[in-house]
Design a protein around this nucleic acid. Structure first.
Lengths: 207, 207
DNA sequence: CGTTGACATCCTACCGCTCGGTAGTTATAA
DNA sequence: TTATAACTACCGAGCGGTAGGATGTCAACG
């Protein structure tokens, strides 16, 4: 199956270029060059430029839905919650920071994050995807975590929605800063660490 | 001075288009159409497309530096701090929410925010401006506010840098969400209100 | 086993169109 | 009269996309 290999290479190259230059500013010839074929050969795999984008978004959504912790976690499922029952607060902090490091560096995820960011005002589908992947699902996950930790008595009683926002939204901004200025990653990771620890300290039971 | 009038119209139209389509995807003919002149007439005011962008950025920076609360506020200046001395915590909350509403709706500010966001990976100057205007200066302002309120005894002792981040970074994300999906503004403003109030409640002296 | 033919994949060459930018000209207003 | 700022007309380059031919792969068949 050489075909699907080339097709995947095309999609990878497109994501690469779209995530730095944007869709409109990326020429098909650039994508072809990156793959090592002629521009016209792209039409053996896709009907046109738009279909490359459509296929790319479809694939991103499928991978995200099947692989992201934020969509898989179902706090209202007793079996899922039970599996987290004996986790310590320090382990929660560790899990969060590890998850951040993964999200920050995974090439596919970070490129998708950049592409959705710079295309959000030109493409409604991308705007929706951006909101879902980088806001709603993350927030819902952390809201579940807050409810869980409150129910378990690890956190003081409070509004889980706002608590989730206060925990994860600063991290969202810092991820964006790292995308923009990768040199500052160390500084940002240190801030995240202080932030998460302070959050659990100030919202902890014995505050 | 018809010249400077037209020049301002061109810059305004350019900001309009750049903020929704991006720089590369915006044609000079679109800018000219928006102003109501021919494309070639743009060259009576600017040497080329790039100079329109340069001039626009220069003007945005100048206006921001001279007008933004975040650059003007100097908490380490005793005179400035003294002017805030008798403000109540509720008034602080009100000030913050009012400032958010202004930043959210001012046409120039919101368009500049969008343009910097979608161009940050293609233009280093815009990346720097984005970080300064929408991250560093805001954070520094709130860090000063935190130090001030802690010194005054209105807030519990804590790390002012992290506290500032926890207060203002969720708001940053919510501003972005409103830019992306303006329909959700009401919902977002309600979240901001709950967030700011909870922040001052949980970080308040008697917590 | 060697030949054949259908199909997939890539190629070169080209199309019409729009881009950013230029040259030279006209209208206006001090 | 002179300077400015608008205009019309055009340029070469690059765009997304198309037509048609070259090459390679592989199952079917005598």
């Amino acid at each position: 199956m050489d075909r699907s290999n080339t097709k995947q290479q095309i999609l990878a190259a497109a994501l690469d270029l779209f995530s730095t230059q944007g869709y409109e500013a990326t020429a098909l010839s650039q994508i072809a060059d990156a793959v090592g074929i002629r521009k016209a050969s792209l039409y053996s795999h896709f009907a046109g430029k738009q279909e490359i984008l459509d296929c790319l978004l479809e694939q991103l959504r499928a991978r995200y839905d099947s692989r992201s912790l934020f969509t898989r976690a179902r706090w209202d499922d007793p079996a899922f919650a039970a599996r987290q029952a004996d986790i310590t607060p320090d382990a929660v902090v560790g899990d969060i920071l590890a998850q951040i490091r993964y999200i920050l560096h995974d090439p596919q995820i970070s490129k998708a994050r950049k592409m959705l960011l710079i295309e959000q005002f030109r493409n409604e589908r991308m705007a929706r995807l951006q909101t879902e992947m980088n806001y709603e699902n993350v927030l819902r996950y952390f809201e579940g975590l807050m409810e869980f930790l409150i129910r378990r008595g690890s956190l003081r009683i409070g509004d889980p929605e706002i608590m989730a926002a206060q925990l994860c939204l600063p991290i969202t901004v810092w991820l964006g800063l790292c995308d923009r200025e990768p040199d500052r990653e160390e500084e940002v990771l240190a801030l995240m660490d202080r932030h998460v620890r302070r959050f659990f300290q100030i919202n902890g039971r014995e505050a």
